[in-house]
Design a protein around this nucleic acid. Structure first.
Length: 276
DNA sequence: AGGTAAACCTGGACGC
DNA sequence: TGCGTCCAGGTTTACC
């Protein structure tokens, strides 16, 4: 499910239901997702007030005075805010109880993840979790620009698409938006990163920001209430130019979109609009 | 160091 | 209907 826009959309949807609430019970129906869930989640989180919900890369952090719950949705994870008595479904792994404010009913933040590639970890106050330590800049921040992208690409023989998905280079760009950004920039995904010049690095930087910004806007406009059952609307609201469109006509020039495999992931591009 | 592939999981779509 | 195969929005880990 989630690349940066989806995680940011989830954060914004959760914000009004979570921020300022006190955590009631924490229930683990499974002791581990991708990794074991650390005991701090059960021992320290209950009773804490959630001061903020932040996003770093594709991670969400629930901040409390005792530390932060660190969540990743992996490929198939989702979060919903539900009435406490909502029936449990398959792969509902974790409940974090949320006490109601001003007489509002208690609710539960429920983490569902069929494939269990997601995780729920803990970050002590003032600490940076090892998983966050090596991450590159946020793509929508001022730390990320064309010159940065250019300098990081020096000496990198890997295909530019693989390079873009390296979270140590820039965070939040996953398989869909990598293909989409390269289409917008007119760059072929197979080009070695080292061959991208300053000017094209600038174009690529703008394409990344453009596609991510628009996706965040779209997600935010359609996903207004996370307490609703589905929690998955908003995805693919942004019409893909190339992703998932193999053999369909390019929206710009009509040439059939090609699909190739790079590093075990599908890549889509237009051979006419993305010549080098 | 950087690049590539395997590994972690389940479910859905498709072909036979 | 059932079974086998392939695919999926991520990221760590192991190995050249």
């Amino acid at each position: 499910m989630p690349e940066l826009p989806e995680v940011e959309t989830a954060r914004r949807g959760l914000l009004p239901h979570v921020a300022g609430r006190r955590v009631g019970h924490v229930r683990l129906r499974r002791p581990d997702l991708r990794w074991p869930i650390p005991r701090e989640v059960e021992d320290l989180l209950p009773g804490q007030r959630i001061e903020a919900i932040r996003r770093r890369a594709k991670y969400l952090l629930l901040d409390t005075a005792a530390g932060s719950a660190l969540l990743h949705l992996g490929m198939s994870g989702s979060l919903r805010v539900l009435p406490e008595d909502t029936a449990v479904r398959a792969h509902d792994h974790v409940d974090i109880g949320l006490e109601g404010l001003d007489g509002a009913p208690d609710r539960v933040l429920r983490f569902n993840d069929p494939r269990r590639f997601g995780c729920l970890l803990w970050q002590a106050p003032g600490d940076v979790h090892p998983l966050l330590a090596g991450l590159g800049p946020e793509p929508l921040s001022d730390d990320f620009d064309g010159d940065y992208l250019f300098s990081r690409s020096r000496g990198r023989a890997a295909p530019v698409k693989t390079f873009l998905m390296d979270q140590a280079v820039v965070v939040g760009v996953g398989n869909i938006y990598a293909s989409e950004a390269l289409f917008l920039a007119g760059i072929r995904p197979t080009t070695r990163a080292s061959k991208i010049g300053v000017e094209r690095a600038g174009r690529l930087h703008r394409a990344i920001q453009d596609v991510l910004r628009r996706a965040v806007q779209q997600g935010g406009s359609t996903l207004r209430d996370f307490s609703n059952a589905q929690g998955q609307s908003g995805y693919f609201q942004l019409e893909a130019m190339v992703y998932g469109r193999e053999n369909q006509p390019c929206r710009t020039c009509g040439t059939p979109i090609q699909s190739i495999r790079q590093g075990q992931r599908a890549t889509y591009f237009c051979s006419r609009c993305q010549r080098s």
